[in-house]
Write a protein that binds this DNA or RNA. Sequence first.
DNA 1: ATATTTCCCGTTACCGTGCACGGTAAATCA
DNA 2: TGATTTACCGTGCACGGTAACGGGAAATAT
Lengths: 383, 383
Amino acid sequence: MWKIPEDASPDFRENIGYLKISGFRRAGSGLIVMSVDSKITINDVARAAGVSKGTVDRVLHNRGEVSEKSRARVLEVIEELGFRPNVYASMLATRKDYRIVCLIPEFQPGEFWELTERGIAAGTEMALKYGVTVGTVRYDQYDMESFQKACAGILESGPTGVVLAPMFRSETLKFVKELSSKGIHYVYIDSKLEEDGYLAYFGMPMYQSGYLCADILTLGAPVSSVNVIRIARDKKGLSDPTLTRRTGFVDYISEHFPDCEIRNVFLDPKDRDMRFEVLDRMFEEMPSEHLVMFNSRIHLVAEYLKERNIRGCRVIGFDVLEKNLSALRDGYVQALIAQHSDQQATAAIDAIIETAVLHRPLSKRDNFTQMDILNRYNCDYYL
Amino acid sequence: MWKIPEDASPDFRENIGYLKISGFRRAGSGLIVMSVDSKITINDVARAAGVSKGTVDRVLHNRGEVSEKSRARVLEVIEELGFRPNVYASMLATRKDYRIVCLIPEFQPGEFWELTERGIAAGTEMALKYGVTVGTVRYDQYDMESFQKACAGILESGPTGVVLAPMFRSETLKFVKELSSKGIHYVYIDSKLEEDGYLAYFGMPMYQSGYLCADILTLGAPVSSVNVIRIARDKKGLSDPTLTRRTGFVDYISEHFPDCEIRNVFLDPKDRDMRFEVLDRMFEEMPSEHLVMFNSRIHLVAEYLKERNIRGCRVIGFDVLEKNLSALRDGYVQALIAQHSDQQATAAIDAIIETAVLHRPLSKRDNFTQMDILNRYNCDYYL
DNA sequence: ATATTTCCCGTTACCGTGCACGGTAAATCA
DNA sequence: TGATTTACCGTGCACGGTAACGGGAAATAT
């Protein structure tokens, strides 16, 4: 414990010398000085309450077997002395093992989920400090069976908590219901389902992101047409997380520029030649200087523009992929709207730790992360 | 420690049953499963190395009094078993008291430093988990003597580390030199001085923020004139942290629009009538539709515009103050460029803890935080 | 009346490290 | 050769909580 230095000046002594209580105190001239940490232990509480530390511990953890009188007295003393349990000692003594598992889709390097995984890595590091291990389970987002298998495996291992991004709607609902019944906390990231058992949610406000996107695309000035580039979806059962975003976008346009024409163009992410053909046709039959995509694949458009050497379009996309950043730097994309998927994942892990390990109340359940606007001048400082 | 459930399926057993080493392992079908945390202790190491835990401890902390042979063997075993010291036990056992002090200017509610203080609060919370106490010392940023007094007090209390935002250049240099000589780590936030003793720096890239600002102000299209609103400074000795930002701004303009005229207008932050008079004259004598301020006080301009009911100007400012946000929502300011001053402060505290308490190497010394672009559509989700 | 249960509570053995302390063998000195 | 220093190293307690264990007193059952 810190003591007042022997050679402390009288002024210094006067300022902080007599402090006993943990915390800080405002001294003269706006100075705030640090006080001595009082380090109240469970033994101090026990002594002051006239009981043993075993009893104090029982009160602390509501383990019962304490008379109402003792309980009240202990609580009173705790409040009075400002006792805060030492997290280290607690973690050391408790032999529990906490495990958190993150359930996200498989991905190729450079794809959207890579950033999420970075956040998971950071969260893992952080969790380690609390003696909590974190693991990741991946599934093929185009193969429901792999998802089911992953879920089954998680349920079997019985973790402390689960972080997940819902892809298969009904399957996820089934999964989280089982989690709930087992008392396992789960946190949504990226998007969430409309049920009520989740511990927390961290994601972008989707509707507003579409609204914002429209503003950035049009720069707030009237435009006559906008081409919305979309991904052709063959599979059913997949929820489309960008739907709400599209709604926000369309709402902005129709509110601000009712005469603006919105066209949809569908691309195949796997067939480059087809994409080029479709975009060629688009520029011929319904050209527009305003292009937008609501998922993370705007780089597909940029690739085309670069190849065809088309400049002068205003192109807006979402999410920070390396390819998108390149397109931004090259000037084929004017702006990206980004979310910190990494921070979302980290925050999700943290939320589970706070709740299940540290038993602290969560301040918010639905956490909408900020929407970052990136252009060529600030994108290099992102992250 | 976690054990394999009795009723685990054969599949599950096969996947993770035999794992001994802490970490994770990739199984078939892209699944990554969690392994058992092996919990190697210092005693395990000691036993395997054929020494006592005292010796292992001496090796771990380079406390000497260990033969080279034993040392090598212990190191070898540590590597082999993948021993990681238990932070909890360590923190519990060590009686050291760590204290971090943050040195920032006094401020009124709603001013720039409020956000920094929020970050300090978050850092304090985090530090508490490590048994580290954090205090704040404030000074009057217009009174050098108060700064000197604050510095003296800090030096006297001999903290583990110091977080500071340099305001008085030469005084700060003197201060950090003393800190260095005492072996006290210090971290710059917001801006830094051109010396080399600091542990880390967290701040915005000032030049680039000016550059970015110019792009947002002009929307990349030619403008004929820009009015730069500045604060009249009477005091000497104060470093002007926005100087570099202004340089970036001017560079952008002269690179992109050499014909654009840049005018400077000086306001008195304390005299509202005078401000209105100056701005009235400005709009009369050298009107421009492009207004910009490089400090956090764009709300002073917005106040005027609102009062005079002037719309149609493009107004860009910096930093997220409540008043600035209001101006943004009201439409008198089109965009704010923001930095997460709070995260900077938190990161600074974290850097000191990582270094001085946990003895972990810092990944980066100069950390440029991202520049956030805020407009009326995304500002409500900031933070 | 004794036997048994219930309710409360104190005792105690850890958890994994840090570090002071004391001890032993080899090296140096007298 | 014996005494002392030096270089190494092991032992044991402390750190603040946790939770199993066991025991005493009161309440209830037999």
